[in-house]
Amino acid sequence: MGEMDSTGHGAGAARGFEFAVETFGLDVGYGGRAVQFGVELRVRRGQIFVLLGGSGCGKSTVMRTLVGLVPPLRGRVALLGETFAEAGREADDAAAIRRRIGVMFQNGALFGSKTLLENCAVPFETLPGRSRREIAEIGREKLADVGLADFADLYPAQISGGMQKRAAIARALVLDPDILFLDEPSAGLDPVTSAGLDELILRLRDERRMTVVMVSHELSSIFAVADNAVFFDRTTRTALDSGPPARLRDESPYPAVRAFFNRIPESTGRRT
């Protein structure tokens, strides 16, 4: 996969590296069986980058590999200019890199036995030196950022699915990460809540110069926020094309990519 275009949102190479996320010949999968081969991603700092593809193409596995949950079968992942994961081994300073990334899972993955505020305190477990009061203040601030200031003392089961997703984003933001990974943030949400999340993601990029890598199916959301996207194909098990979403929709040489954006059923799309 070729290099992604910069949108100029990021701080660029000012802090010693150009790309927030890079992969080199990455094969991803489980139990020795690859679901995607030879993934080459280059995500510039400050970009919103979307991983696209049909159901079962392996985009969530790619993201799990990027965040260190699934070891690469082959190749290497570099985050923020440092090697983060490599086939057969994990980088020595992976723990330090982990503190600079935030991850939101598709179902939120909030801790059910903790309130939203307590959930926001969990990422501080590995960081000594902050008082409980400070941690609580930061947690309340992040919850306020996602519009959940009044719900800090509720448990995840007491709020809606959309609120759980926002709370999960707040938890992912408490350490002010350089990269935010989001797994289908808009899935299952009503259009208004979904638009609110899009706004939040854009704000994170514009105000905090955060790099956002997200898995999404929601075309409206993709066109609203994405600077660049990459399309993973289930049949060839490779990343077919990448670039700004509008270009992928209108100019991609791959029928499968155009079919995805134009909502053409797969069998028809393959023939176009």
Binding site: L69, V103, F105, F111, G112, V122, E125
Partner: peptide, 22 residues
């Protein structure tokens, strides 16, 4: 086990927290 199914353990790992210890 329920935490594992709900990705809560995965979330811990991404935060650098060892679920064995925690």
């Amino acid at each position: 086990g329920t935490m594992s199914v709900n990705d809560e353990l995965a979330a811990m790992r991404t935060m650098g927290i060892d679920p064995v210890l925690y």
